[in-house]
Design a protein around this nucleic acid. Structure first.
Length: 416
RNA sequence: CGGGGCGUAGCGCAGCCUGGUAGCGCAUCUGGUUUGGGACCAGAGGGUCGCAAGUUCGAAUCUUGCCGCCCCGACCA
């Protein structure tokens, strides 16, 4: 991409409404522009990062056996009346009326819709297990949106839904997602820690939040250093050689260690289970949340399959979310310095930035354009600054964007 | 929703208390000098002072209402 063709409105000073690093840098680097409280337009640079994150999420979901689809943002209220959540969800749900006075809503999540879709097409236990997901915009009318895209009202979420014939089978689906999440965040250069979460009315221990450690995180977290230091699982765990027991062992290897956010934290247990040297008390950002909820929706919405015994039983379900747009902010929180962002290669908007210090100089142009063409031909995403700005401004702008690699070309030759 | 704060040029701000018709830095444009890490000189453009009503000869400034945004709390990917 030639910078002269791109749209990159950078700011020298941070708008005063931004109070945390990621929000300030996203505004300054021209990644997003606010359109209302908790509502952001994604400008070209931010959009590139968002798509890279989305693609990693997609690849790891696919690897774990989930199948992509796409559900609409607008849903009919009747679906939610079936589950009982239309009334229960409260003011956080954005309710809309269409021209025929029908009650609609902008989806805050998709359990009801996916349950409807599943029950319409699945009949037998032989149709199971299934994991379906989509990556779609959600709207939750938060009481107080803040921190830019970290807690917007409109946000991009990957949500997966699992369908299984039994609780044991559902646990296997849960474990697949659990492990896929570790890989997903690791590929973005993020150290994620699964922490036990409030399982809600269903009970059990099948709910985990995935927390990325960052000083500016919203949640206070407590965990054992041993779980922080664990490497992400290999891709091969989904190849088929690993049975349910093997995956369970991998999950257990992590869950054996203490890890909890402040609302689930038990100081006594923390003190007794974690050696003093291994106690990590830090702040974190929730980037994912997975839970098993059994027949909470399949029961009232009658999503049933015929079992081997010929009897109809409601399917066991789970749902698994990743905050894709939030990850953009989380990544900046994790990777930035005084000058700007510092993108890990896997999610960088461009791999390389080329600075032509003297556009118009034939040698300089020839060298820069040649390199630009070659790098692109090699499959790299390249940002080529061919603008007539001064050197200092170009460097500062590149620093703000924070690409992994940078090449400077001018009449006096090439640097780095 | 409770508590606090803010709305003046693209961004950051001053002016408001003590009414007299809008200013500074950066950015932008023009000309010139510069040019390897946020240049310099000269000039220029850009503002319904959030919106509305009121007080007044006169309102960015005072009064009232409304709207928007931000911060602290309860909720969440």
């Amino acid at each position: 991409m030639r910078l002269s063709q791109f749209y990159l409105p950078v700011l020298k000073e941070a708008p005063k409404e931004a109070t945390i690093a990621s929000h300030q840098l996203m505004l300054r680097a021209g990644m997003v522009r606010q359109q209302g409280a908790g509502i952001y337009a994604w400008l070209p640079l931010g959009h590139l990062v968002l798509r890279k994150i989305e693609q990693i999420v997609r690849e790891e979901q696919n690897r774990a056996g989930a199948v992509e689809m796409l559900m609409p943002t607008i849903q009919p209220a009747d679906l939610w009346r079936e589950s009982g959540r239309y009334e229960a969800y409260g003011k956080e749900m954005l309710r809309i009326t269409d021209r025929h006075e029908r009650d609609m809503l902008f989806g805050p999540t998709n359990e009801e819709m996916i349950t409807e879709i599943f029950r319409a097409g699945a009949r037998s236990y032989k149709d199971l297990p299934k994991m379906l997901y989509h990556i779609q915009w959600k709207f939750r009318d938060e009481i107080r949106p803040r921190f830019g895209v970290m807690r917007g009202r409109e946000f991009l979420m990957k949500d997966t839904y699992s369908f299984d014939v039994s609780v044991d089978a559902a646990r296997h689906s849960y474990n697949r997602m659990f492990l896929a999440y570790l890989r997903t965040f690791a590929r973005m250069g993020l150290k994620s820690i699964p922490m036990r979460a409030d399982p809600g009315p269903i009970g059990g221990d099948l709910s985990h939040e995935f927390i990325v450690l960052a000083d500016t995180g919203e949640s206070e977290v407590f965990c054992d250093r041993q779980v922080v230091d664990m490497a992400a699982p290999a891709a091969s765990i989904f190849d088929g050689d690993h049975d349910a027991a093997a995956l369970q062992a991998l999950v257990n290897a992590r869950t054996q260690f203490y890890a909890a956010t402040d609302e689930m934290h038990n100081a006594d247990e923390y003190a007794s289970r974690v050696e003093l040297d291994n106690q990590v008390s830090a702040r974190g950002i929730e980037v994912g949340h997975i839970f098993f909820f059994g027949t909470k929706y399949s029961d009232p919405m009658k999503a049933v399959v015929t079992g081997a015994d010929g009897k109809e039983t409601p399917v066991q379900m789970g749902s698994y979310g990743i905050g894709v747009s939030r990850l953009t902010g989380a990544l900046i929180e994790a990777y930035h310095d005084e000058a700007g962002c510092k993108w890990p290669l896997s999610v960088a908007p461009f791999h390389v930035g080329i600075i032509n210090l003297k556009p118009g100089d034939s040698d300089s142009d020839k060298a820069a354009t040649g390199l630009y063409t070659d790098l692109q031909a090699a499959g790299l995403d390249v940002l080529y600054d061919d603008t007539p700005a001064r050197a200092g401004e170009k460097f500062a702008r590149m620093d703000l964007i924070g690409l992994p690699f940078q090449v400077t070309i001018g009449p006096r030759g090439l640097k780095e």
